[in-house]
Simulated assay, not measured.
Amino acid sequence: MTEPMLRPFRPDDAPWLVERHGTLYARDEGFDHTFAPLVARILDDFVAGHDPDRERGWIAEGSGHRLGSIFCVAATGPTAKLRLFLVDPKARGMGLGKSLLRTCMDFARDAGYRDMELWTHESHRAACALYAAFGWHLTESKPVHSFGVDLVEQSWRIRL
């Protein structure tokens, strides 16, 4: 596999992102059929109306294959939201997650955001360890029933 590179998200990446999220979260987390449509709505909203100066998405590619994604979108005021962070299992352990996270955070800082927030699940231990290593702080954790399974939702935040 060639060294993965990051490129801007294109609308034709959306079907892959929806499929990968749906397939991997069903396989690894037991999520039901309601998760992939949520990803599709997030992407539809991004494609339809994002501000390219303040919102951006990236796709990681290697050897002509999509391997991961991350998005920076506006939340409220000076806060950006990290969304759709995914590293395909075949590309894990290559430093791709670090590269995606660094790129997204650098963009948010350069776009004038003062902080970032994200929403995830406690079961994503590798991603949560990466957030902590980059200086993010867990701000909330609560049990929920979502996507057909019992989960522990987490909110994280970082000052840029």
Rank of each mutant, 00 (worst) to 15 (best):
M1D: 11
M1V: 15
T2N: 14
P4H: 04
P11S: 09
D12R: 07
A14G: 09
W16Q: 10
E19V: 09
R20S: 10
R27Y: 03
D28L: 14
E29L: 15
G30L: 13
F31P: 00
P37G: 09
A40K: 05
R41A: 12
I42D: 11
L43K: 02
L43P: 01
L43Y: 00
F46E: 01
V47W: 00
V47K: 03
V47A: 06
A48T: 06
G49F: 11
G49D: 12
H50K: 06
H50A: 07
D51G: 09
D53S: 15
D53P: 04
R54G: 04
I59C: 02
E61H: 06
E61D: 11
G64Y: 13
H65N: 08
L67Y: 05
G68D: 09
V73Y: 05
A74K: 01
T79F: 04
L84F: 11
A91P: 02
A91M: 02
G93C: 11
G93I: 11
G95I: 05
G97M: 07
G97L: 07
G97K: 00
K98L: 12
K98S: 15
L100W: 02
L101E: 02
R102H: 10
R102F: 04
C104M: 09
M105E: 15
D106Q: 13
F107C: 04
R109S: 09
D110I: 06
S123V: 13
H124V: 09
A126M: 09
A132T: 08
F134E: 15
G135H: 08
G135L: 05
W136E: 00
H137W: 10
T139K: 12
E140G: 10
P143T: 13
V149L: 08
E153Q: 13
S155F: 07
W156S: 01
I158M: 10
R159W: 14
